[in-house]
Computed example of a mutant assay.
Amino acid sequence: MRTTGEIIKELREAHGLSKQRLAELLDLKSYTTVSKWEVNENHPRGKEIKMLCTLFNISADYLLGLKDENVIPLFNYKYIPSSISAGLPITVDTVADYECERIALPDNVMGKWARNKDVFFLKVNGDSMNKIFPNDALIGIKMISLSELNDKDIVVFNYDNEYSVKRFMKNERANKLIFRPESNDETFTDIVIEEEQKDLVQIVGKVVVYIVTA
């Protein structure tokens, strides 16, 4: 039978929280309280138990090791609270400069990318990729360089300080980069980057998973 301390540690790590961050969420004076819980030197009480149960969506019986439950494993991923256009590129601030929020997602949704700390999330705004994912879908992005991309990867890219998501198409013969929409609306067209413009392109990453939120 697992101890309460073991369960707290398992839940904290599954949600990608440091001891300090968990202490802040529970309004504790110091992360050492969490440390003592996890090695069973001390135990949460009343209000702390209720807050832990609310935070992790579990029952008190589960937290105290009295009852097993089918708890869906979750992990916290970075979430940038801004939409990336799937239509014409839109101007946004540099992605790296955002103060990221967190989004908890179940492992079974993430598949092989579950708990990958290099994956972060954005929301799609637009219809130029609606054959693949609709407007308002969440997209999980794995950071990757241009040289690592494969033909037909779906990518988020920055071109001349504007961000967009498209299908990447290699055209090595013409020495061009092509970013192709996949939309039911045929008015969307390719974004073609000529050789002399390639320095203006930054690949943010490739889309490895998407989640329809509505």
Rank of each mutant, 00 (worst) to 15 (best):
F75V: 04
N158F: 13
L74G: 01
Y62P: 00
F56G: 00
T213Y: 03
K9S: 05
S147Y: 07
L26T: 03
N42Q: 13
D68M: 11
L146I: 11
K142C: 00
F121L: 01
I8Q: 01
L25S: 07
V192S: 11
D136G: 03
N76D: 09
K112D: 03
E38M: 06
D160F: 15
M110R: 07
I211V: 08
S18E: 05
L52N: 01
Y79H: 07
Y163E: 00
L17C: 10
T32W: 10
V165S: 02
E186H: 12
E99Y: 15
M169D: 09
D151Q: 15
T4Q: 04
M143H: 09
S128K: 11
I80K: 01
A86F: 03
I7K: 05
I103W: 02
Q20R: 14
F179L: 05
R21H: 05
V212F: 05
E196A: 14
S35H: 13
E24D: 10
A104L: 06
N125R: 12
D127T: 14
D199M: 12
M169T: 12
C53V: 12
G111K: 12
I191T: 12
N116Y: 05
K9R: 14
E194T: 15
V165T: 12
G65V: 12
V204S: 03
I141S: 01
V192I: 15
I90M: 06
R102F: 00
V204H: 02
P44I: 11
T3Q: 06
A23D: 00
T187G: 06
N116T: 07
T3A: 04
N158V: 13
T33M: 12
P181R: 13
N108K: 14
L66N: 14
D190W: 15
Y163P: 00
L105R: 02
E172A: 04
T4L: 07
A104N: 09
E196Y: 15
